[in-house]
């Protein structure tokens, strides 16, 4: 089978250049001073210290993770019942609803976010509805709440689909066993269905938290510049001020935090003590 194994070489070279080298460049720029050539590298930790000591930047870091955590929690709270009800539908409706929930995720995120930008305008659809209900003059666009709302809109389908998949894979005989053993509906939900669906919740969390923490387009369009997130910082370091060293440092900080949380989530998922205690 050696003849086949050789065919992986072109991609190995490609991956080294296109995947490994860019990551190494981020690392290198993050730990060196700006303005030095390849020959005269001056190592420093100033780029990291800069972030961890500037209160304004720390606040941006905190805001980003706060928004990402709120978004993730809301997606679970709203998405879980939806996934649960979906799994209870009869088959004819189920495929249709599944398709209807998948479809928006395939439409460009910028396009969907732009639509909300129109609806959340100062005199937009939502402001008018709120006005009719007697709640006048609420600032929507440009607030943290609006950013979280639009993020929930964008990422909720992923959470629903993940939970739905794990619910529909579940062996229904567990539920019969639970009711035979005298559990009522509520008990069998919390002690059978919910623990068995946790892997779905966890992979949903990874699919929501990662993009929510690192987005910059939603906070730009909906936050209108008044809700800066890490992504916006990175954008301005690379595309506006051209400070690659500081930009690399913050990219590295974010990548490490996010990958570490993903790793933890996977670990929790694999840990038998947290999975399906029946």
């Amino acid at each position: 089978m050696k003849q086949f194994a050789k065919m992986a070489i072109p991609y190995a070279i490609w991956a080294a250049v296109m995947i490994a080298i860019p990551m190494l460049m981020i690392l290198l720029y993050a730990i060196t001073e700006s303005g030095n050539g390849v020959v005269t590298l001056k190592f420093t930790l100033d780029n990291f210290i800069y972030f961890l000591t500037d209160p304004a930047l720390l606040r941006v870091l905190m805001t980003s993770f706060k928004i990402a955590i709120y978004t993730t929690i809301l997606c679970i709270l709203i998405g879980y019942p939806a996934a649960y009800f979906m799994s209870k539908l009869n088959e004819k409706y189920r495929t249709t609803v599944l398709l209807l929930i998948t479809l928006p995720t395939w439409i460009n995120m910028l396009v969907r976010t732009y639509a909300w930008m129109g609806m959340l305008q100062v005199d937009g659809l939502f402001a008018q509805i709120l006005g009719m209900l007697g709640i006048g003059d609420v600032q929507l666009i440009g607030t943290e709440g609006a950013v979280i709302f639009v993020m929930v809109y964008n990422f909720l389908p992923f959470m629903i689909l993940q939970i739905y998949t794990s619910l529909s894979k579940m062996d229904k005989s567990y539920l019969e066993a639970a009711s035979d053993l005298g559990a009522n509906k509520v008990q069998s939900f919390w002690r059978v269905t919910f623990p068995l669906s946790l892997p779905g919740v966890i992979s949903g969390i990874t699919l929501v938290f990662l993009p929510a923490a690192s987005t910059f387009q939603i906070s730009q369009l909906i936050g209108q510049g008044s809700v800066p997130m890490i992504g916006n910082l990175i954008e301005s370091f690379f595309l506006k001020t051209g400070d690659w060293n500081k930009g690399s440092a913050i990219s590295l900080i974010m990548a490490v935090i996010i990958m570490f949380s993903m790793y933890l989530a996977k670990k929790v998922d694999k840990d038998p003590s947290t999975r399906g205690r029946i």
């Binding site: 250049v17 080298i21 860019p22 990551m23 460049m25 690379f238 690399s248």
Partner: peptide
């Protein structure tokens, strides 16, 4: 796949 898009993006930009 694991990396946030923006990190991949700045890496490629520098490359």
């Amino acid at each position: 796949i694991m990396n946030p898009d923006i990190v991949t993006a700045v890496g490629l930009l520098m490359l």
